[in-house]
Simulated scan of single mutants.
Amino acid sequence: MIDRTTSNIPRRILALRSIFSSNRAYREFEERFRYLLERRRTEIDADTVAEARCIALIGASGSGKTTAIRHMIATRPDLVLGDPVSGRLDVASLPVPTPATLKFVGQTTLAALGFQLQRERTAQTIWDMVKGHLHERRTLFLHYDEAQDLATHQTPKEMTSVVNTLKSLMQHPVWPVGLILTGTAELKTIINHDAQLARRIYPIELPRLDLVFDAARALRLLQLYAERAGLIAGAEVTTTEFAARLIHASAREFGLLIELVIAALEEAMLTEAEILQTGHFTAMFRKRAGCIDGLNPFVASDFEHIDSRRLLDLGGDA
């Protein structure tokens, strides 16, 4: 029996957020990572040094790419993520810092590997240290989230230095390290900057949802989450028209759609409802975006013309 008291709502929401919903792009990503991981381990066992490879997972904000990499790393029992005795760290994961200068990214990478610089060093020295610590910790993959920031405000010369540094990690003569880059479409700028880098990358793009073709899938997810929350999905939120409204409200992004469904379920819980209705989505979006109902995709008749990412839209000029 589900505890429906309002004091238990945070725990119920946390349980919903722990659900992971897979999709085609994630399965492709997981399969590619598994192959590269097995290949790398085989090379190590054979005492062979071979050039590593990179996976680039590309998607808009809200597509679910960060959740995907976190889930994959957390659910692979064969990954060692910080052995207290050996110090082994199969995958080191970190967001690209701001500003994304080559030197600062190197410092942040060292910190993710458990080493803090005590005095000033040159960028070249820092990256030499990064490579040494990757070897010492037996790191197989280095993951940079928001990797598109590596290209932000970079001159052509600086971009070339970034690309050369990434290649040098995969081409290290003693301990080559595979890369995982997750980021928005701007990440393509880095990938396509250098043909030698591009040929070492397996690109996977998270597609946007389609109002028609993904409607049934959106409804299945809605009903799944409602069931896990102990609520009934009302008839009005299980129509293809409502699915189109939900997909548009989520800016056609998979991860954001799930986020909105959970937020609507929370709204229903707060009102102690047992049936999830359109009104819960309407109230949730109103709070989330701060918009008038005429610009709420769960209310407006011409919802497809609404910019669902825009906040505090009162219908006037920006």
Rank of each mutant, 00 (worst) to 15 (best):
D3H: 04
T5Y: 08
T5V: 04
T6V: 09
S7I: 12
N8K: 04
P10F: 07
R11F: 13
I13C: 10
L14P: 02
S21C: 01
S22D: 07
R24I: 01
E28W: 02
R34Y: 14
L36F: 13
L37N: 05
E38I: 00
R40L: 10
R40Q: 14
R41F: 01
E43R: 01
D45C: 02
A46N: 11
D47F: 03
D47I: 14
V49A: 01
A50D: 11
A50Y: 04
I55V: 12
I55M: 08
L57M: 02
I58R: 00
M72S: 03
I73P: 00
T75V: 00
R76K: 09
R76I: 00
L79A: 02
L81F: 14
L81C: 05
G82R: 13
G82S: 09
D83N: 14
D83R: 07
D90G: 05
D90Q: 11
S93Y: 04
S93P: 08
V96W: 07
P97T: 13
T98H: 15
T98F: 13
T101F: 06
L102Q: 04
G106Y: 02
L113S: 11
L113T: 11
F115W: 04
Q116R: 07
Q116I: 01
L117P: 13
A123I: 04
D128S: 12
V130E: 07
V130L: 12
L134C: 04
L134N: 13
E136H: 15
T139Y: 01
L142I: 13
A147N: 08
A147V: 13
Q154L: 11
T155L: 09
E158Y: 02
E158H: 11
M159E: 05
S161H: 15
V163P: 01
N164D: 15
L169Q: 10
M170Y: 04
P173S: 00
V174K: 00
W175V: 13
P176H: 09
P176A: 14
L179E: 13
L181D: 09
L181Y: 05
T182L: 12
A185Y: 14
E186I: 03
N192L: 12
N192W: 00
D194L: 01
Y202W: 14
L211Y: 09
L211D: 03
L211I: 15
L211A: 08
V212W: 06
F213I: 14
A215W: 08
R217P: 05
R217F: 02
A218T: 10
Q223F: 06
Q223L: 09
Q223D: 15
Y225D: 09
A226E: 09
E227M: 10
R228S: 04
G230K: 09
G230M: 10
I232F: 06
E241H: 05
E241A: 14
F242N: 01
A244I: 04
L246F: 00
A251D: 03
R252W: 06
G255P: 07
E259G: 10
A263R: 04
A264K: 03
L265N: 12
L265Y: 11
E267T: 09
A268G: 03
L270V: 03
E274R: 15
I275M: 08
L276K: 02
G279V: 01
H280L: 08
T282P: 00
M284Q: 12
R286H: 09
A289Q: 10
I292K: 11
L295Q: 06
L295W: 12
P297M: 01
A300M: 05
A300T: 14
D307N: 08
R309E: 15
R310K: 09
L311S: 01
L312V: 05
L312Y: 12
